[in-house]
Amino acid sequence: MTTDTAAPVRSAQLSLRRILPPIVTGQEIVLLAVLVVLWVVLGIFTPAFLTPGSIGPLLVQVAPIALIGVGMTFVIITAGIDVSVAAMIMVSAVTTARMLVAFDIPAILAVLVAVVIGSALGALNGLLIAYGRVHPIIITFGTANLFQWLGLRVFDSSTVNGIPSTLEFFGRGGAGSTFGVPHSFAIAVLAVAAAWWFLRYAKAGRNLYAIGGNQNAARLAGIKVQPRLVWVYVITGALAGLAACMVIATGTATLDQSVGSGKELQVIAAVVIGGTSILGGRGSVVGTLLGAILVQTVVSGVTQLGWPTQLGFLFVGIFILIAVGTDLIRERTRRRA
């Protein structure tokens, strides 16, 4: 994590290193410190908190948020936003669940179905945003309604019952983890690692920052803005599909119509707490992962302290303001210096 592996010293690489931000940004260090303090405090007040029986389920719940958070970080870096992810989870989850019930398809096929559906919905978002040139928040508000209708049509009756435990690989139970590490969380970490490399060293990844910084400048610099934007939303959709599998796996054998509801705001909260600028052009997926863990820690911690569950979201709101506030202050001092 701390070693730079750029072995062949070429001029291009040198200039690249000058442009790239430090490997770990200030926001991530702050987040990590807050997280450690929070875990220690929770560990002192509720001895059950720092046990594998408590941390494991917490990480399982973090996984879908962090996973979609990767896509959402891409989207927000390009100065966009996607409020339709909750509806995308719903469509993917209900379709996959019904196929599991009706045809008893194997796990790998179920994941494939969910990811393909998510990608298709994401592609619709991307095409409308890139070529319709309407603000992403409006497009995704609109498509969220369409997706919700689609999902409810697939639901047909009120719930999907008797879902087999085909997807237990992602679940909370014993089959869902290896050596105490939940598979779903491991997948989320892998996705974050891949995205971290992609955003930092791949040309297409750097292009996303350019698009977010100034779309017209990016276009004049020869970046194919529209195709890049489409892909960003497709990736978000695909990850929402994969996250839907995790949601099915962690739930009961019954899937109800509220599946996914509210997830879009949780994901956006994780991304902005992680230091990604909502204005575009700046952000990191490592911060998003830490942000997702922080949000879930706060929500779970409040419950474990015996406070009203709903109080957790007050702290989530406060954390959003603190995280973005420190980022604003740092940005202001950087500009002054």
Partner: peptide, 11 residues
């Protein structure tokens, strides 16, 4: 701002 206060006020 309003995402944060959405959570806070609702809570």
């Amino acid at each position: 701002t309003t995402l944060a206060t959405f959570y806070a006020y609702r809570s």
